Simulated assay, not measured.
Amino acid sequence: MRWIKTVPLLTGSCRHPQAMTLIKGTLKPVDFHALAMLLIHPDEGPILFDTGYDPAFLRATKAFPERLYRYATPVDLPEGADAASQCRALGYKPEDVKHVIVSHFHGDHIAGLHAFPKAALHCARAGLTDLRRHGRLAATRRGLLPSLLPSDFDSRARFFEEAKDVALPPDYEPFDTGKDLLGDGSLIAIELPGHCPGHWGLALKDSNYGFHFLVADAAWSLQAIRENRPPPAIATNWLGETLKARNTLTALHRLHTRNRELRLTPCHCPERASESRIFRT
């Protein structure tokens, strides 16, 4: 695996009762930051893992029934906190981003896709199929906003399922295989079933931390991974499949237990957000 520099981008946040993300959590609403990750590849340049919130999310949830999404998870998005604006502030033009890796198709992960018009869009075919098979109300209930897809999405899509199978280093056990997205071993997509159809994470060799596993929404926090403490079934059944989600979380717990040196990053983890450069106006 080649070395990649990672730069976390905190692209706004939503408020939601912790108990919907963690069994026996508090009913008090808490802030969950939306973490996208800027990846600096030695040859390909800037790459994104997810895009987080974006003003497009607010536009997409202005009318009913999509507005119900915004009611369920009220969003705070400061001006300039979107991924494209933060890339510019870091010296990277959005049009120079060659690849965006989509962990899954929930609106808080794909809202900024429109801002990266030259990027190949790496995603799961299963997730894209699921996104397009629901009516507006059913899609909204599942956290899906099909209007966020760029009009040329299909022509730029590259599917995880079609990438080359590769063996993972022993450091990732019990995860043993993934998909080599760029063909150079630098970015390995790993399926993490359960949260929703077509949900994947990304393994890489981080120049700051060594082996690094971006686990998207397979867990909402490092606490959940450490304690093997999933969301309640009502939450996991709402979006995906409870048994698969809990099996995935158990595998992440086993990974953390046997290899505490490997860095795990859930997209909404408060601990990871507190370590990162939180965007301020």
Rank of each mutant, 00 (worst) to 15 (best):
R2W: 08
W3A: 12
K5F: 10
P8S: 12
P8V: 06
P8H: 06
T11K: 05
M20N: 05
T26N: 00
L27H: 06
P29E: 01
A34G: 07
A34S: 13
A34F: 11
M37L: 13
M37K: 04
L38M: 03
L39V: 09
I40P: 01
P42G: 08
E44P: 02
A56M: 06
A56S: 10
F57N: 02
R59I: 07
R59H: 08
T61Y: 02
K62V: 05
K62E: 14
A63W: 13
R67E: 10
Y71F: 15
Y71K: 13
A72M: 15
T73E: 08
V75D: 00
V75Q: 02
L77G: 07
P78N: 09
P78G: 08
P78M: 06
E79G: 08
G80A: 10
C87N: 08
C87Q: 10
L90T: 06
P94Y: 08
P94H: 03
V102I: 15
S103I: 01
H104E: 15
H104S: 10
F105Q: 03
I110T: 15
L113A: 11
H114I: 14
A119L: 14
H122R: 12
A124F: 05
A124R: 04
R125W: 12
L128C: 14
T129P: 01
D130L: 12
L131V: 10
L131S: 10
R132K: 14
H134S: 12
R141I: 12
R142F: 02
R142H: 09
L144A: 02
L145Y: 02
P146V: 12
S147R: 13
L149R: 06
P150A: 02
D152N: 13
D152R: 07
R156W: 04
F159L: 05
E162C: 08
A163S: 09
K164Q: 14
D165R: 15
V166K: 05
A167I: 00
A167F: 13
P169E: 07
Y172M: 15
P174Q: 11
P174H: 03
G178V: 01
K179P: 10
D180G: 04
D184A: 07
G185I: 05
S186F: 09
I190W: 05
H195L: 00
W200K: 04
L202V: 03
A203P: 02
L204C: 11
L204A: 02
N208G: 15
N208M: 15
H212S: 06
L214I: 09
A219H: 04
S221V: 08
S221N: 03
I225H: 01
N228S: 10
R229P: 00
P230I: 05
P231E: 08
P232I: 10
L239Q: 02
L239D: 02
G240A: 12
T242R: 09
T242F: 10
L243I: 13
N247P: 01
R254E: 12
H256M: 07
R258P: 00
R260K: 14
E261V: 02
R263P: 01
P266S: 04
P266E: 03
H268N: 05
C269P: 00
P270F: 00
R272M: 07
A273C: 08
A273L: 00
E275V: 04
R277Q: 15
F279Q: 00
T281P: 14
